[in-house]
Amino acid sequence: MSVNVPLRTVYAYDLLSAGAIGCRVDAAIESALRSGHLIGGQIRVALDGEVIYRRDVGVLDPAHGTPVAADSLFRLSCLSRLLVSVAAMALVGEGRLSLDEDIHRWLPDFTPLLADGSLAVITVRQLLSHCAGFPRRLPTAAVAAEAYQDASVADDTQLPDTLRQLGMASLRYRPGSAWGHSMASDVLAGVIAQFAGGSLEAALQRYVIGPLQLRSTGYVVANQPGPGPVFVKGQPVHPLKDGILSCADDYLLLLEALRQDGGVLLPKVLIGEMAAIQTGDLQLQGWPGRGFGLGFTVLRDPLAADSPESIGTWRLHSAGGHSWFVDPLKRLSGVALTNTAGNTTDSALARLLRNAVYGV
């Protein structure tokens, strides 16, 4: 005897249920482990402010078999730039920093030149939107470091020399005329350090780390073991510098604080300014269909980006192996911190996780 069972209609929101997302992300992670796109990492996804997926996977170092744990630390690499951007916007909110004023006011000895030898006028907005013309890395960066990890913002001991080198180099283009992810964040770090006794670390503590009580974030994290090696094509490499350290739980707290209108961090209007595309019709190399706000990319054309995310979604990924996103419309956010560099040059791992979250 046959029984006719009506098929339930599958709605779009079923794809974004906690259970469905968890199953798909688990499958994506297993695939990434098999392919070598992931050796060890922390992955978190939040929906409407609630963490719906949390997984610590793989090992910090296969040679020692140390598993990744919830409190394992990772080098943020260029993801550290978001902390600097938030600190700068907090100073804007206090009225101590202006987005459209020449940074020469705060860094009088910092005098980068245009290709024709004339002095460049650079604003805080251009630093935040990476339209200031600075290079992607220092001319003196070691070849090995270029491949994976030299994008962390310099700490207090390194920052003076970093600014000196950037100040001596010619800009790649006139500020405001093009876009390129660059060391503009280090210059911005030099600006905000002026408001904290010359210390970038003190500024980040005051405006980001302290207000959110990020207990595993900083250039030095007390009572926690340091990060292991970074793996490039499966081989362990020990970076020349650690930069800012963090864990996925801390970074997700930062993302959610911004998604939920800032709270203790920033006024709502300033978060809106960060999420507004600042780059006009400029094409972002490596980011089709996206513009750049004040600290991250912003999705403008899902078809061009080949992305299931909502228009207005914020996203960054790093050659150091990390990625994060915030979809304000769907109230989704997520972060993956890994020790597996080079897998996001073509955004392979970031794309795999993104598609798993959205069910495509």
Rank of each mutant, 00 (worst) to 15 (best):
L7R: 10
S17N: 09
L258F: 03
K241F: 15
L171V: 03
L245E: 12
V86S: 01
S323Q: 15
G262M: 00
D186R: 00
L284E: 11
T162Q: 01
D346Q: 14
F231W: 15
L33H: 15
A87H: 02
L60R: 15
L188E: 02
V3I: 10
L329S: 10
A257N: 03
L255K: 06
V5T: 11
I277H: 03
L282T: 09
R55G: 14
T66S: 09
F292Y: 04
R174G: 04
H238M: 09
F325K: 05
R164W: 07
G234I: 05
P225L: 08
V187R: 07
D161R: 03
A178R: 12
G228N: 02
A32F: 12
G197F: 15
L188W: 07
R300T: 06
S199T: 14
R54D: 10
K330I: 01
V335P: 03
I103R: 07
V221M: 06
I277A: 03
T66N: 05
P112R: 12
A248Y: 09
P139I: 10
P302A: 04
I122L: 09
Q283R: 11
A202E: 08
F231S: 13
P229R: 06
L270Q: 08
V230M: 12
D116W: 04
L258N: 03
T111S: 14
R164Y: 12
Y358S: 00
W314I: 14
A348H: 13
G359S: 01
S17A: 08
P175D: 07
R55F: 14
L299E: 00
L254A: 02
P225E: 10
T9S: 04
D242V: 12
S199C: 13
P236F: 08
L16D: 06
A202G: 06
T279K: 06
L166K: 11
L47S: 15
R174L: 05
V57M: 13
S310R: 08
A115V: 10
Y251N: 09
V335S: 03
L91F: 05
V153L: 11
Q194R: 13
N4A: 13
R354K: 09
G176V: 05
S98P: 01
D56W: 14
G40V: 14
F296K: 06
V25I: 11
G36S: 08
S185G: 06
D346N: 12
A336H: 06
D102A: 08
W106P: 01
F74M: 04
H64R: 10
I122P: 13
L97E: 03
T297P: 00
G36K: 07
V45W: 11
S307M: 09
H317C: 14
L252C: 08
H64S: 11
A69C: 10
T313I: 02
M168I: 10
D150S: 12
A319N: 13
R215W: 01
I39K: 11
G295H: 01
P239H: 09
T140R: 11
P302H: 07
T111D: 15
G41S: 13
D327E: 02
M168L: 11
V191F: 05
R34K: 13
L353F: 06
A222N: 08
L171N: 01
L200A: 11
G280R: 06
E309D: 07
